[in-house]
Design a binder for these strands. Structure first.
Lengths: 337, 337
DNA sequence: CCTAGGTGGGAATGCGCTTTCCAAGGTAGT
DNA sequence: ACTACCTTGGAAAGCGCATTCCCACCTAGG
């Protein structure tokens, strides 16, 4: 059905070997006259190399696998975008899988990528790391067979990647909020089995305690918009939020902050006078909120890009740490300021 | 390096043919006793089929290619998520490419997918369709060679897919806004070379005119958040927005609406009393805005899912049309209501 | 008891390409 | 002028698997 290399070779009156040498960057360059004849033939026939066959023969597929929790989550889609940029125009294709944070599917994805002989596997987002023993084992074998693996966002033993200084950035944010004069804090911690959420909360609370401030409450919940909405709703109902004093709510990520704001507003409290809110990530829509919301800017796309570039390099896996920076906006204005 | 089928066969004391038959759903089922022996051997050796080799031998890759403008755009990431669901657990992998709306890269992506012998290609988002002649040609050849192609969101001649009734939904929204009592409209049309933007504006304005209402202004701009921000800013500066009467701004998509709201607010106008805003798509964060913003809900994920399922089916390419529904929220409340 | 039909495993071929390995021709060095 | 070496194109051997034949054996029917 499709035109094969052999067809091109015949058309050009050369051997398949020669045709192959001219049509892809081989180290051996046939004479220009012959090369031109092959190129013309390929063009005329509309030849497309069969990437599968090439991969089989070369033992390298030109594929990179990316595993994310949820591609519809701006956190991951930004990273995915960066990864694509990082891969560049080298004809490397991206294979994507969303796992919904299910270890089973994560493992399946790794196996699938191994099957497809991807040159590298990128893992984005943190995992609960209890009993992902199988995952680690699979990745190790993948690496033994020459595959590259890089984590993006979270570290993993024995793998390179670019990670985030969640704790440090959270501490910086706490610092800024203290400087603003906030003293009464509530923490919406999200799912503490996730390293990301844990690091952020620890960094934030740690800095608070260094300054002699103890949060009124630290409450866990889903690491999602609805998690923020429900947890915040609970706190309002319990009277923790909406007391006479302004309370500053630190949410472990931005979408939780969005949910929090809606929950707070629905119960008639004022933002930020009654309840100040800060998030984490700086997702794109955040600046268009009213009030605009304070957060920690994470160069998500940049991180993805770096990870993408990293797996394209030769050499051994490096490990980079990227830091975020607090962005103070209206949602944390002090009452009366 | 990796363990091959032949290794498993030797370990189990059978021929590669038999091993192959038991390890994948072949029509010929070897005896249970032998099958078990093979499975055990495969398990013990940690065998992974080489998907490349399988693809080559079977002439089917277990791959589906998805082309989007920008994976970081919630519109597309929602679709991508749906597509993955639609593909299901059949071991089909997704190859993703973001083209940044560049016809060149779009073509390159199609070619790459052809090279990888993807079983299907999904094209999301509308293209300018001027001079994508080459694209159409490439897709045609792909189909001739047995590839399936489906559009998602926009139609394309000679390809199935699931499309959106943009015009109809926009008309419905116009209808609702008229019922609310709005009579003074401004339209932020986005990039009218995109069929999606064009259809929405035509549907909206058409319905208005049916009711004898002519928009104050229809202004083009980028089909992005910043496009909305700048265009709206211009309109405020020109005094079109912020007149004594409440003006309802229809934006061709949600992110434009977000930009619009910020621009309007920055210039001291009240939402929705001075300027009412309506968008299109119903991206997730919209309900958390203040005021919550009116839009047209598009079942993005659903559309992706349907497209994903569609390319998994046998039979000829179907063509589905999905409609959206107006969602009235606070951003279009009538002044004084 | 003999044969037609069926069943199950293995040898061999091919999927489309890359890459040794060869051989032939050309060049340079002594 | 002859040998040694480099260059270049082609033949052929895989890459790892699916699958078509083919053959041996077994069952059932007459």
């Amino acid at each position: 059905m499709a035109v094969r290399l052999a067809d091109v070779a015949r058309e050009a009156g050369v051997s398949p070997a020669t045709a192959s040498r001219v049509l892809n960057g081989s180290s051996r360059k046939p004479a220009e006259e012959i090369a031109e004849r092959v190129r013309v033939a390929a063009q005329r026939l509309g030849y497309f190399p069969n990437a599968q066959a090439q991969a089989l023969a070369r033992n390298s597929a030109g594929l990179v696998g990316l595993i994310v929790h949820d591609i519809a989550d701006p956190y991951f889609s930004s990273i995915a975008r960066g990864v694509q940029q990082g891969l560049g125009e080298n004809g490397v294709q991206l294979m994507l899988t969303s796992t919904g944070r299910d270890p089973q599917r994560e493992l399946a994805a790794v196996r699938a990528f191994m099957s497809h002989r991807t040159d590298a596997i990128l893992l984005a987002g943190s995992r609960s790391q209890q009993e992902d023993h199988e995952l680690l084992e699979a990745l190790r074998r993948y690496q033994d067979n020459g595959g590259r693996v890089a984590m993006v966002g979270q570290p993993l033993p024995a793998a390179g990647g670019v990670q985030l200084d969640n704790a440090g950035a959270a501490a910086d944010l706490a610092d800024e909020l203290l400087k603003l004069g906030h003293r009464r804090f509530a923490v919406l911690a999200g799912d503490q089995s996730l390293a990301t959420a844990r690091d952020r909360v620890e960094g934030f609370v740690g800095k608070l305690r260094d300054a002699g401030v103890e949060p009124i409450v630290i409450r866990e919940g889903a690491f999602t918009r609805d998690g923020g909405y429900h947890t915040a709703g609970d706190l309002v109902r319990e009277g923790v939020l909406g007391s006479d004093e302004q309370t500053c709510v630190f949410c472990a990520n931005d979408v939780m902050a969005l949910g929090t704001m809606t929950a707070v507003r629905e119960r008639g409290l004022r933002l930020p006078d009654d309840v100040a809110v800060a998030g984490f990530d700086d997702i794109p829509t955040l600046g268009d909120m009213f009030p605009s919301v304070t957060t920690v800017r994470i160069p998500l796309e940049e991180i993805g890009r770096m990870a993408g570039e990293m797996v394209m390099e030769e050499g051994t896996a490096r490990r980079l740490v990227v830091s975020g920076h607090p962005v103070l906006r209206d949602s944390t204005r002090r009452r009366g300021a």
